[in-house]
């Protein structure tokens, strides 16, 4: 799985960070950082959930 964020869409709502903090981090500069571009399989469910819950649908997963 590869995590791709469309940073033109991303509004840093940080929902993804709440669901999968191992993969997504919104830092104090208010930008989203991807910590694991290829997350471990044990994280895939969480990452899918994060992608789905993004209010801007800014997270795409290449599986």
């Amino acid at each position: 799985m590869k995590v791709v964020v469309d940073f033109d869409l991303c509004e840093s709502n940080a929902i993804c960070m709440a669901i999968a903090p191992e993969v997504f981090e919104v830092r104090d500069d208010d930008f989203l950082y991807i910590l694991e571009e290829h997350p471990d399989e044990s994280l895939h469910d969480k990452v899918r959930e994060a992608a789905e819950r993004c209010p801007k649908q800014a997270i795409a997963l290449e599986e």
Binding site: S12, N13, A14, M17, A18, V26, R27, D28, D30
Partner: peptide, 12 residues
């Protein structure tokens, strides 16, 4: 207010 990271940590 212009602190999205804190909003989510706050929620938790």
């Amino acid at each position: 207010w212009n602190r999205p990271r804190q909003a989510i940590i706050g929620r938790q």
